[in-house]
Design a protein around this nucleic acid. Sequence first.
DNA 1: CTCCAGGGTG
DNA 2: CACCCTGGAG
Length: 411
Amino acid sequence: MPRTNVVQSGRPPRIRRSSPQSAKAPEGDWSADEIRSLQTSLKAWSKRTPRDMPWRGVGDPYRVWISEIMLQQTTVAAVVPYYERFLARFPDIATLANAHEQDVLSAWEGLGYYSRGRNLHRAAQAVMSNHGGEFPRDVEALRGLPGVGRYTAGAIASFAFDVKAPILEANTQRVYARLAGDEGDPRTSDGQTRLWNFAERILPARGAGPFNQALIDLGALVCVPGRPKCEECPLVHLCRAHRAGRQDQIPPAKARPKVTDVHEAVMAVRRNGTWLVRQRQPGERWAGMWDFPRLPLERPIETPGKAFAGLQDALMDSTGLHALPAALLPHFSHSVTRYRIHLARVVANYAAGEWSQLAEVRWLKLEELAALPMPMAARRLVRDLDQPGWAPDAPFELSSTSGRRRNAKPR
DNA sequence: CTCCAGGGTG
DNA sequence: CACCCTGGAG
């Protein structure tokens, strides 16, 4: 029987003491009956709402692990084709551990957040050397692997081994916050603590794997961001947010991070049908991957004539290479975390000189570039260089992407 | 074009 | 707490 519940007037609980079991936790007012009801209702729902994914229900920790790493910060639709190709190429953990990092990065090309790929490779080697080639079953040992945090460890443990381990990721975070009626910001460390505790409390003794997957599905299909579909929800009768009519406000939307514009020139330097590429160094963005030389730019290129002279000098200064800018490809922009990178894409003809750090530099034909892992912006440039739509001897023809800034054509 | 989604690390 | 990436939708 619920005792007089203190109505919390829309404010998150202020005082969180060290003890996570504090009776004032937002999940504290869930009775054992309600938790059982949650478990059975969710189970029934997941039975009639099956969601197929290639890595579901295989019980193979290697596959679960690969899929979970790929799914970090990446949507299911984007992952599926990568997952299939990756498994074909690295069918088991030993194969992956013995592969070259370059090949792992190639398989990862286009997925983004490439440290995931590098960590995947290192973790495979750790499983081979520290765990006899067998995935550890407990959360703590799993967390010791590079790239495996608390969520991924819980996912592997529960999905592959049915260990009673909670999970907290974007979907379940939303579901927990609404079920618990937690008005706080789930992204703060206090918020995370509360939601992890909630996740732990509602876990069934057996079947944690299917239970966790059902929660993810519920978040993805029903308890969606913005306006959740409470009419379809098997857990409405328990949902604190719904009870208070607060489901549209919980969890609070996150503030948009401000983006910084960055202007760069990518130089496609040509020499006898080959192109200059360099391997990005450890600590750089896209470490280990191959890219065309880039030069910082104060502002977007307005007049190619003037800019070309400056680029020629800058290239000389930073690489010792003498090359003559000859053409502009359509401008290209992409975002990297909080940066929006605007790329002027310059084709230049090699004239003289050698790049100082030879080890990390190669002159390659376009076909040969296919084999190297590259960031998407560089891959796009390779593709565009391959379309002979641009004219190396007609410098100012293709300077603008949208036609908005079509230069007066000298002709 | 802008907006959005999405865990782990040093 | 700053940093890491891309693709799809609108």
